Simulated assay, not measured.
Amino acid sequence: MALQDIVEQTVTGLGYDLVEIERSAGGLLRVTIDLPWDPQAAEQFVNVEDCEKVTRQLQFALEVDGIEYKRLEVSSPGIDRPLRHEKDFERFAGQVIDITLKAPMGAAAAGQVSANRKKFRGTLERAEGGQGWQIVWSDEPPVKPGQKVSKKRPPAPVQALGFTLDELREARLAPIVSFKGRGAAEG
């Protein structure tokens, strides 16, 4: 069996989702796992015991099938989790993400955005009409604590970019860290 099949079968058999497999120079095999998403349940996170359980099972499965590796690393997706499948986009709708397009915008942005731009950060939303996705952002800089903002200055316009998963080179959750604690309101 191929490496992808062995790892996927082992990970899903233990009740986890396989996020990605990466082989690096020097024989490192990196496997990223996540807990299956349940929209009704509270958000849960992969912990050390989950990674340890998958590591033990993968070591056994890879040895049985004779897959060569020097070091195995099993981890959670982290705060900059890659988004690859439709269910990932559904799960993280409303979150701030970073996307990189395969091709630059070109003339499609009607002068609103640089024609060579491929990278965007904004809030992920379902596109109008329910077909595809869009990212919404404003190029206005964030207000720093204690900074006075003129009420006369017009706000920067909100922009939206519609895209399909086929147009993406990469999509990830934006690694935004708040030291105010989990669930703290932005601002």
Rank of each mutant, 00 (worst) to 15 (best):
L3E: 15
V7I: 15
Q9L: 06
T10E: 05
T10K: 05
T12G: 03
L14H: 07
Y16P: 02
E22M: 08
R23C: 11
D34F: 02
L35D: 01
P36Y: 08
W37K: 03
A42Y: 02
Q44A: 15
E49W: 01
D50A: 04
K53I: 00
V54K: 00
Q57F: 00
Q57A: 10
E63S: 14
Y69C: 06
E73Q: 15
P77I: 08
G78Y: 09
G78Q: 07
L83P: 02
E86R: 08
K87P: 02
R91F: 03
D98E: 15
P104V: 06
A108I: 06
A109V: 10
A109E: 09
A110E: 15
G111I: 08
E125I: 01
Q131S: 14
G132D: 01
W133R: 05
Q134N: 07
W137D: 01
S138V: 05
G146W: 13
G146D: 13
K148D: 07
V149F: 04
K152C: 00
P154C: 01
P154D: 13
P155V: 07
P155E: 08
Q159P: 04
A160W: 00
E170I: 00
A174K: 01
A174M: 03
S178Y: 05
R182F: 12
R182K: 10
A185G: 01
